[in-house]
Nucleic acid binder design. Structure first.
Length: 287
DNA sequence: CATCCACCGGAACTTAGGGTTC
DNA sequence: GAACCCTAAGTTCCGGTGGATG
């Protein structure tokens, strides 16, 4: 995944996607019912940049539009995401952290009577609870832009009502930039004549490390111990992992819990599982 | 082919904790 | 301060899966 900083301000080689998204959002400005868009494609393909670019451009031409960008990787519960939206609208003054019921937050959104709002849910597949999407769909003042790199997973996690609404949304697919395009972009951005391919490739490991350390920060002590157990060997079956974990700590959690941790580690790309059924093994992700 | 076993992961529940409301 | 609302993490229970074994 390329760092945010490597993504150009100017949007190169993405005319088709820009136009498609603009077409979906423009009716909102004219006071017509909002349509929604779903942006899909691998990370690093520029989905987030395009969304920000199009929304930003829209706000320049039509003054009376609000916009909110929610990173669902950070705001992964319904509550946190709702809170984030209200925050963006400046409506959180007396909403207190973590203790206000969902309904209260929703009431506030329903009561909103300002200019139309474009809500972008970035990395929406990270959302635990698809309800939020439904909530937003019901509210006429809000246009929704969903961004995901895993459409399958997103759809699987949603209930039928949301899914059918999603089918009517405009889907815009992004492909990964190829090296020529990236070289072009880098040249454009730095004003340099040519940027060697190796410069771009050199940026990738750094970006990976950053993502990795962000993931590590979110682990607690015992989860890190499980990771260490895996680091000390190459490939262990679950049974062995658990035994070593039990031996290593004072007051061990249950197997099921450790299984959840492994799942979490896998989700963060820190470990990988090989094989299936009884002879599955886990190991630390290489590189 | 039937059965067994370890593993997988969903669901419902418990517990602890932070906060509000009356 | 008691009753309440929420979240987060962990536990218990359990049906499903798939390779191994007889």
């Amino acid at each position: 995944m390329l760092r945010e900083a490597f993504v150009p301000n100017d949007v190169v080689h993405r005319d088709g996607e820009v136009d498609a998204l603009s077409a979906v959002l423009e009716p909102v400005v004219a006071g017509e019912p909002p349509e929604s868009a779903l942006l899909t494609g691998p990370s690093g393909a520029g989905k987030t940049t395009i969304a920000k670019f199009v929304v930003g451009r829209l706000r320049e031409t039509a003054l009376d539009v609000e916009s909110i960008h929610v990173n669902c990787w950070q705001s992964y519960t319904r509550f946190k995401a709702l809170y984030r939206i209200l925050e963006g609208l400046g409506r959180t003054i007396d909403v207190h952290r973590q203790s206000t019921p969902h309904d209260e937050l929703l009431d506030r959104l329903e009561a909103y009577d300002g200019p139309p709002v474009i809500v972008t849910l970035d990395e929406v597949d990270q959302l635990e609870d698809g309800h939020l999407i439904y909530d937003l769909y019901r509210l006429p003042a809000f246009a929704v832009v969903l961004i995901t790199n895993d459409e399958e997973e997103l759809l699987a996690g949603l209930d039928e009502r949301v899914r059918s609404r999603l089918h009517t949304a405009e889907t815009i697919h992004f492909d990964r930039y190829d090296v020529d395009e990236l070289t072009d972009i880098m040249a454009d951005r730095d004003g340099a004549d040519a940027i060697a391919e190796s410069h771009i490739e050199a940026a990738i490991p750094e970006a990976r490390r950053e993502v990795r350390s962000r993931a590590l920060d979110s682990l607690h002590k015992e989860q890190r111990q499980v990771l260490e157990i895996l680091q000390d060997s190459d490939g262990l079956p679950p049974r062995e992992i658990y035994d070593r974990y039990v031996a290593a700590v004072e007051d061990p959690r249950t197997k099921r819990t450790v299984r959840s941790w492994l799942q979490k580690l896998a989700q963060y790309n820190l470990v990988e599982a090989d094989g299936s059924g009884p002879d599955r093994t886990y190991r630390v992700t290489s590189s």
